[in-house]
Nucleic acid binder design. Sequence first.
RNA 1: GCUCCUAUCGUCUAGAGGCCUAGGACGGGGCCCUCUCAAGGCCUAAACCCGGGUUCGAAUCCCGGUAGGAGCGCCA
Length: 474
Amino acid sequence: MSAVSRFAPSPTGFLHIGGARTALFSYLVAKRLNGKFLLRIEDTDRERSTQEAVDAIFEGMEWLGLKSDFAPVYQTQRFDRYRQVIEQMLADGTAYHCYASREELDAMRAEQTARKEKPRYDGRWRPEAGKTLPRPPAGAPPVVRFRNPVEGEVVLDDLIKGPIRFANVELDDLIIARADGVPTYNFCVVVDDWDMGITHVIRGDDHVNNTPRQINILLALGATLPKYAHVSMILGADGAKLSKRHGALGVMEYRAMGFMPEALLNYLVRLGWSFGDQELFTREEMQTMFDLSKVSSSPARFDMEKAYWVNHQYLKIADPKMIAVEFDWHLRRMGVDPANGPALVDVILSQRERCRSLLEMAEKSHFLYAELSGYNDKDAAKHFNAEGLHVLAGLYKTLKALSNWNAPALHEAVNQFAEAEGLSLGKVAQPIRVAVVGMAVSPPIDQTLALLGRDRTLARLDAAVAWARSRAAG
RNA sequence: GCUCCUAUCGUCUAGAGGCCUAGGACGGGGCCCUCUCAAGGCCUAAACCCGGGUUCGAAUCCCGGUAGGAGCGCCA
């Protein structure tokens, strides 16, 4: 039997970081076993599910490169199948009708809670040999409950957490179909996993308590049990649970912050998992090395600093052409036309080691694609002094006469100028930087000027001198 | 309240009874390099939740605390 894993989000919001990690783990397990990965949309809650959320999940998954091997499955399209299984269970006696009203159940739970007991269904409509059931009330459609075993225990041999035992007496008869006939979550999951031949159920560990119920239903159905792995959740930097109100970000927001998808994946795979001292993994390495049994069962905090570090490592080593795709996206996003300046790949080569994110890279490269909006006050004050202006004016002439406009030639020209003037390279490079970049930070001056091009460089040198003089005069 | 899960540097982790004087990485501190910012190199501070056992020996096994977390719906 070949492995099939799935990622089964409910479309009530964007793909958040914890979901992305769960999806990644699930994906890696399938790939490692040469199996298939499936995306299933759990949209039985029609109140909360939205098409926007479905789209957002697809968008996130696509950006991360976690492709489903099958067409996505929607639970709302499988109601006929669920009904069929429920009918069968009713016929088999593994499920039964329950006519208890909501009010009745609420009262029951209130009493149990008052007695400091765990609230659970007391089995009042559960058929039992020799037991007389109440007469069904007229006009009140029943729900369907699963007839959970009352004895013995369920042992869940979790791939991450190890064996976990649940006594059946702790479990009650859960509702598998509502009064209106719509099946419930725990039941749909079971039927889906069964029908789709899921061999590995990898999900958040908020589902461990659902698992024994699901196992019992699977057993009642005569299905083969999948293996389970419950992944701990991701906490915020402060150790608190991530929520909409508290720092939970969608995967696409990490794109906006300037992450490479591969880098985010790499950071995520290392959160709770390790392989010796290795920090960086290619997608292929993740697929061959990832091992659920080595995943930590305790929750981990999301550390933005380390995530940026991983991202930086990718920016430094990845194929510039790959980076260019994201870089282009960021430049356009800040209203810059990437065609109005040097080739993206050349800029990436010059900027990659000094940028932790693509957003930072785009910001630091803005000057190459658009006119300067002004000078940094401090930098201008410091470098546009008499000596600086002398340098700018002198360099203007030197560079204007330069026949080859490329980094080596510029390097040579600037060095010679500095030497001739008896100035350190810093005294020469900094005023130029402020003049052409607008601030005192940029790649090496020769590269900066080469990227900027002759016309823009000369124009900015000229403009800086004029600006500084008019300022001094005014 | 009940059931279940978790607990090593600030953070992610290594650690499967002696290899632990607890290792690596991020972040921090310092030095070197240097035209800026970076990058890089070297050095450095920093942890086994507490208490009992078991054992010649425990971060590792057991028990009990404590502290976090999850679940207990005609939500998913």
